[in-house]
Structures are given as C-alpha cells and as structure tokens.
Amino acid sequence: MTALKSPAQCETKDDVRVEIDRIDQALLSLFAERHRYVTRMAQIKTDPHEAHDRARIESIIEKVRNRSLALDLDEDQAELVWRTLIDWNINYEKGIIAARRGAE
C-alpha cells in the first residue's frame, strides 16, 4: 500500500492521482454507508410525501455550508453536491415507499 502524501508532498501528476484515487475510494465507501441509512429511512417512512422535508433539507444545507467554510472548502460547491445527493435520495425513498404501499 502506498503511503499517504500531503498535497505539498506530491511531486508528480501521478502522485496527485494516487491520492485522489485513494480519497475517491473512501468517499465511495462513505456514500455506500450513507445509502444504507437512506434505505433504512425509506423502510421506516410510511408515506412518499415524508421523503421531502423542506425544513430538514435546509437545516442540512446550512450545516454543510458552515462546515465547508470551517474546512476552507467552497460552500457553494458543497451545497450543490449535497442538494444533488438529497434530491436523488428523495426520489429513491419515494420509490421504495410507493412500491411497498402498492404491494400492501
């Protein structure tokens, strides 16, 4: 396994790519873990309309923006990623809930 290099320690494009690939794998693992919780939430909810909770969404976005600033990350970029993720999750949850209700 390749040792971790900080951005400053990367001397070549290949060095940088190795680290980005490592981070991408970690992100995928975290997204997969998050997805399992979203799936469980869809199993708990009883109405497809529950999947879209505007107050909860805006609360999450506010946290993401604040945390991004603290991490010196562009808050607009982070918000875009999270809104995309949330939109996908809402549609996913609605599908699971609707399918379950249709089978009842």
Results as ranks from 00 to 15, higher is better:
Asp21Met: 06
Asp21Gly: 06
Asp21Thr: 04
Asp21Ser: 06
Arg22Ile: 02
Ile23Pro: 02
Ile23Asn: 05
Ile23Val: 08
Asp24Ile: 08
Asp24Gly: 07
Asp24Phe: 09
Asp24Met: 13
Asp24Cys: 10
Ala26Asn: 03
Ala26Val: 06
Ala26Ile: 08
Ala26Trp: 07
Leu27Gly: 03
Leu27Asn: 03
Leu27Phe: 06
Leu27Asp: 02
Leu27Arg: 06
Leu27Val: 07
Leu28Ala: 12
Leu28Lys: 11
Ser29Trp: 09
Leu30His: 11
Leu30Thr: 08
Leu30Tyr: 11
Phe31Asn: 13
Ala32Glu: 05
Glu33Trp: 09
Glu33Tyr: 13
Arg34Val: 13
Arg34Asp: 13
His35Gln: 08
His35Lys: 07
His35Asp: 08
His35Tyr: 05
Arg36Asn: 05
Arg36Phe: 03
Arg36Gly: 05
Tyr37Ile: 11
Val38Asn: 02
Val38Leu: 04
Val38Gln: 01
Val38Cys: 03
Thr39His: 15
Thr39Arg: 10
Thr39Tyr: 10
Thr39Phe: 11
Arg40Asp: 14
Arg40Gly: 13
Met41Phe: 14
Met41Ile: 15
Met41Arg: 11
Ala42Asn: 01
Ala42Gln: 02
Ala42Phe: 04
Gln43Thr: 10
Gln43Asp: 15
Gln43Phe: 14
Ile44Asp: 09
Ile44Tyr: 09
Ile44Met: 07
Lys45Leu: 15
Lys45Arg: 14
Lys45His: 12
Lys45Ala: 15
Lys45Ser: 14
Thr46His: 10
Thr46Ser: 15
Asp47Ser: 06
Asp47Trp: 04
Pro48Met: 02
Pro48Ser: 01
Pro48Phe: 01
Pro48Tyr: 02
His49Gln: 12
His49Glu: 13
His49Asn: 14
Glu50Thr: 04
Glu50His: 05
Glu50Gly: 01
Ala51Phe: 00
Ala51Leu: 01
Ala51Asn: 00
Ala51Glu: 01
Ala51Gln: 02
His52Ser: 12
His52Leu: 14
His52Met: 11
His52Phe: 10
Asp53His: 07
Asp53Gly: 00
Asp53Met: 06
Arg54Ile: 13
Arg54Gln: 13
Ala55Val: 09
Ala55Trp: 08
Ala55Gly: 04
Arg56Leu: 14
Arg56Ser: 11
Arg56Thr: 12
Ile57Pro: 00
Ile57Gly: 01
Ile57Glu: 02
Ile57Ser: 00
Ile57Lys: 01
Ile57Gln: 03
Ile57Trp: 00
Ile57Val: 07
Glu58Val: 03
Glu58Ser: 04
Glu58Ala: 06
Ser59Ile: 07
Ser59Cys: 10
Ser59Asp: 11
Ile60Val: 07
Ile60Met: 07
Ile60Ala: 05
Ile60Gly: 01
Ile60Phe: 06
Ile61Ala: 04
Ile61Glu: 01
Ile61Ser: 01
Ile61His: 02
Glu62Pro: 08
Glu62Val: 08
Lys63Pro: 11
Lys63Tyr: 08
Val64Glu: 04
Val64Thr: 01
Val64Leu: 00
Val64Cys: 03
Arg65Val: 00
Arg65His: 00
Asn66Ser: 13
Asn66Leu: 12
Arg67Ile: 10
Arg67Leu: 15
Arg67Thr: 12
Arg67Ser: 12
Ser68Phe: 03
Ser68Cys: 00
Ser68Ile: 00
Ser68Asn: 02
Ala70Ser: 08
Ala70His: 07
Ala70Val: 08
Leu71Tyr: 12
Leu71Cys: 13
Leu71Val: 05
